[in-house]
Write a protein that binds this DNA or RNA. Sequence first.
DNA 1: CGAGCACCTGGAGCGCGCTCCAGGTCAAGC
DNA 2: GCTTGACCTGGAGCGCGCTCCAGGTGCTCG
Lengths: 140, 140
Amino acid sequence: MAPDATTNDSTAETGVSIGEASARTGVSADALRYYERIGVLAPVPRDAGGRRRYDAATIGMIDFVRRLRSTGMGVEDVAAYAGLVRRGEGTVAERRAVLERHRDHVAAQVEALAEVLSVLDRKIGHYADVEKGAALDCDD
Amino acid sequence: MAPDATTNDSTAETGVSIGEASARTGVSADALRYYERIGVLAPVPRDAGGRRRYDAATIGMIDFVRRLRSTGMGVEDVAAYAGLVRRGEGTVAERRAVLERHRDHVAAQVEALAEVLSVLDRKIGHYADVEKGAALDCDD
DNA sequence: CGAGCACCTGGAGCGCGCTCCAGGTCAAGC
DNA sequence: GCTTGACCTGGAGCGCGCTCCAGGTGCTCG
């Protein structure tokens, strides 16, 4: 059986290109290079030609970074967390603390959004009322 | 009975100052002027000395604007909505459509945040496990 | 009367997080 | 051999949403 269509080389060219990593994670290639520069990602290994190769673990990390970013964690904070991950086992408690703080932050966001959601629903309902019986209109 | 401590003048100085409006809404005075400039707020009436006076309805609008902003609606979109409000009754259906679209947007945000929340909880739980029996650790 | 304070205007500046660009290298396909 | 395309680097540029500044006005308080 052929082992793998993309890796049948003895010099084990492993991982995927930056384009592929971008496609898989939804993070732009520019952003990936930027993340590496500022330390959100550890220096990514290169192939013979100096091109980046992203392994599965790194892809996973990028995906997690994307989630953190999407919930409003600043790139510096993400870089700090990533630094802990890189420093290894001794930082587990600290990593947990960082994530717990961020979880609380996200939970607060959800609450705040839910509140706005209810305000929107009230307002939409009000508009709907005005549209039907265009009468008992107050102001907004 | 004294009618009101702040408004016992015959020339009816109505509404509150920009500082007061800022304090009540949590929106900075600079932002309030900025909002007026770009049309998020209609031109605010002035007192004899050219200072802005915010009435209750405007304070309410500012509060709603703050909610829209906090849920990621861009200032231009907010200005567009505010423009509809200013144009009056004929725009009710359109306003409703805008808010419904935004509500969907916010609902999607809530869903996305909730998903990240669960990922965070899993990860935090995993870290907690590692901390207790520091053994069956895989990688992250 | 002088000081202090809140407010005014127009415009410049800024922090964030990328995004884009110029100029170059390399590998593959025609 | 030449073109095409994905990738490389360092650094400049940008869109957003304010924020800050200089320079000035006017009210109030001691």
